[in-house]
Write a protein that binds this DNA or RNA. Structure first.
Lengths: 126, 126
DNA sequence: GAGAGAAGTTAACCTATACTAACATCATGC
DNA sequence: GCATGATGTTAGTATAGGTTAACTTCTCTC
C-alpha cells in the first residue's frame, strides 16, 4: 500500500468514520462538515484520491471507497482508536486533548509499529 | 509560548541538536546538511524565526537562539528523546523507524501531555 | 413539471514550504 | 593582500493544501 499524505489519510479516515465502504456511499458535504473544511477542498482531495484509485465517485455523485481505500482508511482509524485509548486510559490525558494529539500521531505509525503498540497495550491491560 | 509550525519546530530542534544556545552559534550550512534541505530553505526559515524572536542572526552571520527559542527547541528535543526511548525500549521498534516516527509524533505533544508521558515511562522502568 | 434551495464543481487565488540558480560576502592559504 | 572556494542571500519557480465566489446539477415540494 503506497503511502499518501497526512491530509489524504484524514479524508479516507473521515469517510470510514461516516460509514463509507465499497458499497455504502458518503456525501461530500458530510465530509466537509465533519472535517471543518470547504466543499471545494473536499472536491479537490477526492479528485486526487480518485486518481490514486482509493475512492470512486461519478460526476455529481456520492463517494464510495475502493477496496484499497477502505483498507487504508480503516487502518488509519484503527491507529486513531488505539492511540486515543492509550492517551486517555493510560496517560490520563483529557479526551479533547487526546483526540487532537491522536489525530496527529496516527499519521506517524507504520503497520509494523502498530502491531507493537497493540501488543504493548494489550499487556498493560492485564 | 506561542505555537509554531512543525517545520519551524524542526529547525529549532536541529539548532539545539547542533549545540546552539543563546551564546553558542550554529552555522546555516550545518543546519542545512543535518536536515537535508537546501541552504535557501534554511535561510527562509531562519528569517521567519527571527521575526518571531526565536533566533538571532546578523547579516551574513551565524545563528544563535534567543532565550525563548532555546527553551522551545530544548522542549521539542526532550519530547523527541522521550518518544524515541519509549518506541525502542518499550515497544521494541527498530531504531531507524523509531527515529522517524518520534520525529513526527514529537510535534503532536503538548507540554501538559509531555508530563504525563514522562510520569508513565518513569513508572514503566520501576 | 417547475422553482428553490441544497449539494457538487470549477476557477482564481493565498500561504507555507520546499527547490535551483545566480549572486554577494567571507575567510583562508599562498 | 588577493584569489578562490565555502558560506549566506535573493529571486523565481513548484507543489500541496486550503480558501471564496460563481456556476452547474440535483432533488424535493407543491
Amino acid at each position: 500500500m503506497e503511502k499518501i499524505s497526512m491530509s489524504h489519510e484524514d479524508y479516507l479516515e473521515t469517510i470510514v468514520m461516516l460509514g463509507g465502504t465499497t458499497k455504502q456511499a458518503v456525501r461530500s458535504v458530510d465530509i466537509s462538515s465533519k472535517m471543518g473544511v470547504s466543499k471545494a477542498s473536499v472536491n479537490k482531495a477526492v479528485s486526487a484520491l480518485k486518481e490514486k484509485h482509493l475512492v470512486d465517485q461519478p460526476y455529481y455523485g456520492d463517494i464510495t471507497l475502493t477496496e484499497e481505500g477502505y483498507e487504508y482508511g480503516t487502518s488509519v482509524l484503527g491507529r486513531h482508536h488505539l492511540l486515543l485509548k492509550f492517551l486517555t486510559e493510560h496517560l490520563g490525558i483529557d479526551p479533547e486533548t487526546a483526540e487532537e494529539e491522536a489525530c496527529q500521531m496516527e499519521h506517524a505509525m507504520s503497520d509494523e509499529s502498530f502491531k507493537k503498540w497493540a501488543t504493548f497495550i494489550k499487556k498493560l491491560n492485564k
